[in-house]
């Protein structure tokens, strides 16, 4: 039981505003995501690669601050009954594919710079 049981998100945007509404919301979320990545310096691959030569820790700082802040907000909202965690998409764990794919992406990051 939460404080706001009448509004348990995620909000059914598609049911409320149709597909166009959902796609517009997705576009706006993407817009904010792209804007924030750019102001953080993620548009510059030299800056990104510098993370792995310990010359610029931006990637680490931005990513893990983002993860921790989102985590606190998600579980906080879930505790308050604003967000129904059971309806949130949690990536299923495929341990070895994740690890092997992650290593390949890490190699790709250094070779390609993104």
């Amino acid at each position: 039981m939460g404080w706001f049981p009448e509004f348990p998100g995620p909000f059914p945007i598609e049911a409320m505003y149709g597909k166009v509404g959902l796609y517009l919301v997705a576009f706006l979320i993407g817009l904010a995501f792209g804007y924030i990545l750019e102001i953080g310096g993620f548009g510059n691959s030299t800056k990104l690669a510098a993370q792995f030569y310990l010359k610029d820790m931006t990637v680490f700082k931005v990513m893990f601050t983002g993860i921790v802040v989102a985590m606190v907000l998600i579980f906080g909202a879930s505790g308050l009954g604003l967000l129904d965690y059971n309806r949130v998409y949690v990536n299923p764990t495929y341990l070895w594919p994740g690890i092997v794919g992650g290593l390949i992406m890490g190699f790709g990051f250094i070779i390609g710079g993104f």
Partner: peptide
Amino acid sequence: PFANPYAAGVLLGVVLFVAFLLTGSGL
């Protein structure tokens, strides 16, 4: 100059949260 990385991280976290709150999935 680029934004402070921690400030950008906080904004990123808020957007990620909003994505989950509105659509149920992340970025």
